[in-house]
Simulated scan of single mutants.
Amino acid sequence: MATDDLKSAALSSSQDFYALLSISPAASESELRRAYRKTALKYHPDKVGPSNIAALEKFHLLQLAYDVLSDPAVKELYDNARRAKEAKVERDRQFEGRRRAMKEDLERRESGVKRKREEDDNAEVEFERELRRLAEDGKRRRKEREEVSRREMEMDERMEKAGGVSAEESVRKNGKVNGEVPDEDRSVTLRFPLAEGTSGIDEAEVTSRFERFGGIEHTVLREKKLKIDGEKHRQPYKAAVLVFKSVVGAHAAVTDFLKTSKSEPETYGIFEAVNWATGKEPDYIPKPPVSSRRNSQEPAAPPTPLPKAKVPRVSKFVEELNTPVQQNGGGGLKKVPSFGSFKGTPVKGQNSPSLDEITMIRLKNAERRRMEEKIRREEEAAAAGEAEADA
């Protein structure tokens, strides 16, 4: 075969001549010759016959392979072309791998975008649903507040007409509406100095002493050191948080404690700084009118001194409720009745603020105003009688 034909065959052939002869590219010339003879005998026309076309084509291909590989110059061309084809196959394989990876990554991204879009759509639907729910809930709450306000106004009108009807009876006649009161609105704080006589007071003892104001759900007691005004060093104290079952009980504990501690010093004299746990009275508790203090001729008793930034100060409402009313004739002081003087103040087992709780406070404020007015009239009558007697 001509050299040009061999070169053309070496460059364009798709056959692997080394694999065809079952030798390695580094085989020697003698190994190439032996391999060719051994393989060619199997497909020689004299052995397989002229009718075996496939064997004849294989024999001619073996001859071409031997001619290409036995010529060093042509073999070099074939090796270079073979390596180039193998490199191309490898590049194609790597490219296919990268293409497949890019395709899979693109599919994942598209899937993620689709999922994110679905999540956004679901979130938007959920948001709109929540807005509708909040709007409906707000509308319902507004109606409830309007109903509560209407009932409170009716209750005030009935109390003005009823006159001597007790708070408990009025609440029972007019019904109640329950609602949830947060624990902090039913919680009060107090403290007492830690000394030899008070070290044995535990949570159960504190609970038993303050249950007179109302049922208590639980009590938390812990020791701490407080800086008291006028003292150089911090003093050991026990601080307690009492969660009442009813806001009425908590209110009674805050407002009636000063009077109770004076009347029963052996039981309550050790306790200090009884106040709301939040530092202020709940907003929904009815406030007494400003005129309730106009008849008082003495300033209100100051609240229990508290360490700065440690225990919240007593609210102004607590001071007002504990303001004494002085007689015009100088015959002593008459205390304004507190919540504890009304039957049914500690409503044990009641764990929700209700219209009856708020109404109870409102009724007691009204009762207190009537008592003040009665005392004022009696004092005016007594003063007028004394003036006539002097004349």
Rank of each mutant, 00 (worst) to 15 (best):
F244I: 01
A239S: 10
P346A: 06
I270Y: 01
V89G: 01
K161H: 05
F210L: 09
S8I: 09
A65K: 01
K335H: 15
K88V: 04
M371L: 01
M1L: 02
E29L: 13
R212Y: 09
A389Q: 13
D390W: 10
K374C: 00
A84F: 03
K232Q: 06
A366W: 15
I375R: 15
D71A: 07
K334C: 06
E128D: 11
P289M: 07
K245H: 12
S170H: 11
A81S: 13
N122E: 12
D183I: 04
P25Q: 06
L242D: 04
E126Q: 12
I23G: 06
V188K: 08
T267D: 11
R209C: 08
M371N: 07
S352W: 12
I23F: 07
M153V: 13
G164M: 12
K103N: 09
Y78K: 07
G329M: 09
F271N: 04
V89E: 13
R369K: 04
V347K: 10
V125H: 03
G329H: 06
S51V: 08
S28Y: 02
R212D: 05
D92V: 00
G385Q: 15
V148M: 07
D79T: 09
A253Q: 03
M1Q: 01
L363R: 10
P337H: 09
I216N: 00
L242V: 03
Q63A: 10
